[in-house]
């Protein structure tokens, strides 16, 4: 099976979707001729023409707002916001319009759009190229929120997102675009060509939305992770020697509660990890759900390891980013209770 980077997998997902369904339209800033600042749409305009893949003015509300109108017409727009940090001007369109169109019109109009955006830190991106705003979307009824962690899932989830009848926020951890990253910035990065999850089948396949996957089976503690933190969790488990069961959530909304509860009832312990800031982050929802559903099986308090409640700094990148050492300490503490 061919190995691809996450960038290539994402591009392939759009290519496959555009070839299968002429209603699929791709646009955003620098997405057309140039192929995107991360190369995720490279070649699509040449292959499908300017009316299927095109450059947009620098206006996030314009991009998402026009995509909603296109979806109401009957197209399936897959649009890009250059960085998740720049989605806020489109927030009104996403929250007030895309998420509610089916509900408020009783299905008279629907909004099958995908909003792709590179997310996450670990790249010296500073305040406006590193944020993880997923909790701002998981709080919104009517949206689906997806965060892939590897090329295989990225392609399958993106095709599923494009085919989904409802709006999907598709957050791509840019730190994982070229290879897995476990937080060990001092070591050379390995490319996806050396990782088995870099194997991406040709043609059409989907990874269903709303289904988590167990990345590392274990018996001692459940780690709930997504995006880059999946690899941080693997490193932390290996370095501490703790037999952690690592769940890659993949879809945050709707959430695969069954897999989470099944695991925590087995291990009796749970550590949640995300890059996003702690307070009111998605980890709070996960923690509450675990507590509500697994209370009598818990042998230790549910722990959360997250970005600090500060804007994402530049120079202090590795003091901010929740790396394997910090997560490892939480695993050890959770096992000691």
């Amino acid at each position: 099976m061919p190995r691809r980077t996450m960038i290539e997998a994402i591009r392939d997902a759009m290519d496959v979707s555009m070839a299968r369904d002429e209603r699929v339209i791709v646009f955003g800033e620098d997405v057309g001729f140039f192929g995107g600042v991360f190369r995720c749409t490279q070649g699509l305009q040449a292959k499908y023409g300017k009316s299927r893949c095109f450059d947009a003015p620098i206006s996030e509300s314009g991009i998402v707002g026009s995509a909603i109108g296109m979806a109401a017409y009957g197209l399936k727009p897959c649009v890009e916001v250059q960085f998740a940090d720049y989605v806020y001007p489109a927030y009104d369109q996403i929250v007030s319009e895309a998420a509610r169109l089916r509900y408020r019109s009783n299905g008279d109009f629907t909004c099958p759009i995908v909003v792709r955006m590179p997310t996450g830190g670990g790249i010296f991106g500073g305040q406006t190229h590193s944020q993880s705003p997923e909790a701002l979307f998981t709080h919104v009824s009517g949206l689906k929120v997806v965060v892939p962690s590897n090329p295989h899932d990225a392609k399958g989830l993106l095709i599923a997102a494009i085919e989904d009848p409802d709006p999907v926020i598709f957050l791509e951890p840019k730190r994982l675009y070229n290879g897995p990253f476990d937080g060990h910035h001092e070591r050379p990065v390995t490319p996806w060509s050396k990782h088995e999850l870099g194997e991406v089948a040709d043609g059409h396949y989907t990874v269903p939305l709303g289904k988590a996957v167990i990345r590392r089976p274990g018996a001692a503690v459940t780690v709930l992770a997504y995006g880059t933190m999946v690899y941080v969790a693997e490193a932390a488990a290996e370095e501490t020697g703790i037999d952690a069961e690592i769940i890659d959530l993949r879809t945050l909304l709707p959430l695969d509660l069954e897999t989470i509860v099944g695991s925590v009832k087995k291990t009796g312990r749970c550590v949640i990890v995300h890059e996003a800031t702690l307070t009111s982050g998605f980890g709070a929802e996960l923690s509450a759900l675990v507590q509500e559903n697994c209370f009598y099986h818990l042998e230790a308090p549910v722990a959360r390891v997250a970005g600090w409640d500060t804007p994402y700094p530049h120079a202090q990148e590795w003091d901010y980013f929740p790396g394997p050492a910090r997560l490892g300490r939480a695993l050890v503490e959770t096992m000691e209770v």
Partner: peptide, 22 residues
């Protein structure tokens, strides 16, 4: 479908028109 949020539909109309042209 009318929304309570003002002006949101203005750009959506343009998108709908773009879709018709596409």
């Amino acid at each position: 479908s009318i929304s309570g949020n003002l002006a949101t539909q203005y750009i959506q109309a343009v998108g709908w028109a773009m879709a018709s042209a596409i």
